[in-house]
């Protein structure tokens, strides 16, 4: 696999995906896995849930990934504590996956659903995405939460729902660009896969160094 050619002697890229409950983080991962694998990048995933392993079980059942390459972290408390204040459990899970599957090129770490203040520790990940969705309201970008401002890549998901829920997609894009400066943003519809290639292109450039 191509993963083995990319800095074989260093560890896989670690990419965080955060965002509010129901914004589409797991759905995004379900689209990223086959797109990355199609480019020869092997994937492993660490999920975070409050008191269950729901997201991990969903991915294991999906048929998209070897179930052994999915690990679940039960945060037991506010999800951001496990990705920012004390990411030990997630670091351990990622270390274990890297050791067990040396051909993996990227480890995706999905945060539990959280609020707009959620951010990842860069001790844990090399790069992180923040996912919001049009159904959450078109005022979300201009609320300037740290997740929106500081993430490496902002994803605005469920663009197909915007007209149905009265969200102004152009306004969301304009506000997001204003508060993020030159940091990138991608619009997605994870139900159809629209926008997924743009995300993978960004990851390929910034952390996989394949573009």
């Amino acid at each position: 696999m191509k993963s083995e050619k990319i800095f074989k002697h260093t560890s896989p890229a670690r990419v965080g995906i955060g965002g509010p409950v129901g914004s589409g983080k797991t759905a995004l991962i379900e689209k990223l896995i086959p797109t990355l694998e199609a480019r020869g990048i092997e994937v492993a995933v660490v999920t975070n849930d409050l008191v269950t392993k729901e997201d991990a079980e969903r991915l294991k059942r999906s048929g998209l990934i070897d179930p052994d390459r999915v690990r679940a972290v039960e945060t037991g408390a506010c999800p951001h504590t496990a990705i920012r204040e004390d990411p030990t459990l997630n670091i351990q899970a990622a270390d274990d996956l890297a050791a067990e599957f040396p051909s993996v090129g990227i480890i995706i770490i999905e945060s539990g659903g959280d609020n707009l203040a959620s951010t990842f520790s860069l001790d844990l990940v090399d790069y992180w995405l923040f996912v919001i969705d049009t159904a959450g309201g078109d005022d979300i970008p201009r609320k300037k939460g740290p997740g929106i401002i500081r993430s490496d890549l902002l994803v605005i998901n469920k663009i197909d729902l915007a007209p149905l829920v009265g969200s102004d997609l152009e306004l969301m894009e304009k506000d997001a660009n204003e508060v993020r400066g030159d940091r990138p943003m991608v619009m997605t519809n994870c139900a159809t896969g629209e926008g997924i290639v743009a995300i993978v292109n960004q990851l390929s450039r910034d952390v996989l160094f394949d573009a």
Binding site: I6, F7, H9, T10, S11, A13, R14, D95, A98, S121, L122, D123, D126, Y127, R205, D206, V207, F209
Partner: peptide, 25 residues
């Protein structure tokens, strides 16, 4: 300072070299 915590990043040097940094953990 914050970005020095990353183990992988793509950056441009002050002479314009496109650099891909990938360190072990």
């Amino acid at each position: 300072r914050e970005n020095t915590l990353r183990k992988r990043l793509r950056v441009t040097g002050d002479k314009g070299t496109d650099c891909a940094i990938a360190l072990s953990r």
